[in-house]
């Protein structure tokens, strides 16, 4: 039978930054065929297809739709495999090989992580699982 794809509305203009991305215009409707947890979603349009940032989309059917999991305050252990330097105030800077706790896996790919006393957003694509935290 037909595959029903989730439709989203574009909430801000987006200009592509690499070959396999596509431009978005506020108010456009897009159908998503793959939701990568790194925050890049694959859009299948009538005339174009490519990766777009989930952070620029809202669900067409009810913005209250809860696709996102709840925060996990105990945290799940991950290790950074790439360094990232914070560019915004709510982000956290980490070096390669740091073990951190993931508190909230946000759909936009910018997970909330904790290291010691510090908490902030970090790109999920630079993390890999370190195994479950023991209680």
């Amino acid at each position: 039978g037909p595959i029903l794809l989730d439709t989203y509305r574009v909430i801000a203009d987006f200009t592509k930054t690499s070959k396999h991305e596509i431009d978005l215009h506020t108010g456009d409707l897009v159908e998503i065929v793959e939701k990568n947890q790194n925050g890049w979603w694959f859009c299948q349009g009538e005339s174009k297809r490519g990766w777009i940032p989930a952070s620029y989309l809202e669900p067409l059917d009810g913005p209250e739709e809860a696709e996102e999991g709840e925060p996990d305050y105990e945290g799940e252990m991950f290790v950074t495999h790439k360094a990232y330097k914070a560019e915004q105030r709510d982000e956290i800077s980490l070096e390669v090989g740091e073990t951190i706790s993931v508190i909230h896996k946000l759909l936009d790919g910018w997970w909330v992580v904790r290291k010691g006393e510090q908490t902030g957003h970090f790109p999920s694509m630079f993390l890999h699982r370190a195994g479950r935290q023991e209680v």
Partner: peptide
């Protein structure tokens, strides 16, 4: 079935739209 996603982190949500984002 689709090409690999970009290797750079996606942009953060535009500040004025954060409340509406997915």
């Amino acid at each position: 079935t689709v090409k690999n996603p970009p290797q750079n982190p996606p942009p953060r949500p535009p500040p004025e739209t954060r409340r509406k984002r997915v």
